[in-house]
Design a protein around this nucleic acid. Structure first.
Lengths: 155, 155
DNA sequence: TTGATTACCATAAAATCCCATGCTATACCA
DNA sequence: TGGTATAGCATGGGATTTTATGGTAATCAA
C-alpha cells in the first residue's frame, strides 16, 4: 500500500518578489510518485513553515470522521487550528510554489528559504532562524548524549 | 475507495445584499471532483454556519442507524437537529451560493463571510466572531500543550 | 403583475502558467 | 586527469487564465 518516502536534506532556495520558491527536486519527485499534493501550514511550535503530503493530513481527517467525534469540542478546536491554517500548494511546470504572505511572515522569510527534511514532514525556515535552530539542536543533543560527540570540527 | 479531499485554509469573501457569496475555488473543486453537493446547517455549538459534502451526512446517517452504544439517544437527537436544519446549496456558473436569512442570522454575518476549513467539514463565520474564536482556540491549545508554544526571540 | 429567487454577463484583480536564461553538477572523452 | 559537453535545476519576466464581485436579465410563485 503506502509507498515509502522521506523528505531529506537541507536546501536553500531563493524567494522572489512574488513569493515563489522552487520546491527541491527530490520533494517534487515524492509528490509525483505518490500523486498527492504538498500542504503547508504555520508550525505550532516554531517560527517556521511546516509541510507534508496531503495524504498525511487526509489520514488525520479520516480518524476524526466517525460519529463519536462528529460532535466533540476538543476535536473541533484542533481541526480548526490545523485544517484552517493549512493550504494546498501545487507547483508549476518549473517546480515552484507560491508561499502566502501569512506563512512568510510567520517564518520571517524574506528572500531566502531553507527546506529541512524531517522524514514524513519538512520545514521551511529563514536562513537566520535555521542557523539558530540548528545550533540549538546540536547543543541540545550534545548535552543529552555526550557520548555521541567525538569531533569538534563541525561547530 | 473514497478519494481524498480536504476543506482547508481560511478565506474571506464578500456577501452582497442578496446573500450571495463565492464558495472558495478549492471547495468548488472538491464538489466537482466528487460530483456531490454542499450541505449547510447552523452549528450546534457555535455562532457559525457549518458545511460539508452531502456524502458525509449520508455516512453519518448510516452510522447512526447501526450505532447501539450508550450515547446513541443523545447522538440521535443531535443528528435530528442537523438533518432537520440542513439544506443543499448549489452554486451558479460564477461559483456563488446564496445563504439563507436563517443561516446568516445565526452566524451574525452581514457583509463578509470567513470560510474556515476543517478537513471533511468547513465553517462559515463573521470576521468578528472568527477573530474571537481563533484567539480562544489558540489560548486553549496553548494551555493544554504549553510545550508547543514558542517565543519569537527563539528562547 | 409583482416580488423574489435564480441564472447569466462584464470587469478588474489576482493567481497561475509557460518561455527563456543562467547556473551547477555530472558524464564523457581525449 | 583535466577539460568540455550535457542534462537537470533554479530563477526572472511576461502572457494567460481564474476568481471574485457588481450588475442585469430571465424565471418562478403567489
Amino acid at each position: 500500500m503506502g509507498k515509502t518516502f522521506l523528505f531529506l536534506d537541507t536546501i536553500t532556495n531563493k524567494v522572489d518578489s512574488k513569493g515563489r520558491v522552487s520546491l527541491p527536486a527530490d520533494y517534487r519527485e515524492i509528490v509525483k510518485e505518490l500523486s498527492t499534493n504538498i500542504v503547508c501550514y504555520r508550525s505550532l511550535s516554531a517560527p517556521c513553515i511546516e509541510g507534508c503530503t496531503e495524504e498525511l493530513l487526509a489520514k488525520l481527517a479520516s480518524e476524526m470522521e466517525s460519529s463519536l467525534d462528529f460532535f466533540s469540542q476538543t476535536q473541533d478546536d484542533l481541526t480548526n487550528l490545523i485544517f484552517g491554517d493549512a493550504r494546498k500548494f501545487t507547483f508549476d511546470s518549473t517546480g515552484r510554489i507560491v508561499l502566502s504572505e501569512k506563512l512568510l511572515a510567520h517564518a520571517q522569510i524574506t528572500d531566502s528559504a531553507v527546506f529541512v527534511g524531517k522524514g514524513r514532514k519538512f520545514q521551511i525556515w529563514s536562513p537566520e532562524n535555521w542557523a539558530k535552530e540548528e545550533k540549538r539542536i546540536r547543543a541540545e543533543i550534545a548535552k543529552k548524549r555526550p557520548s555521541l560527540t567525538f569531533s569538534r570540527e563541525g561547530n
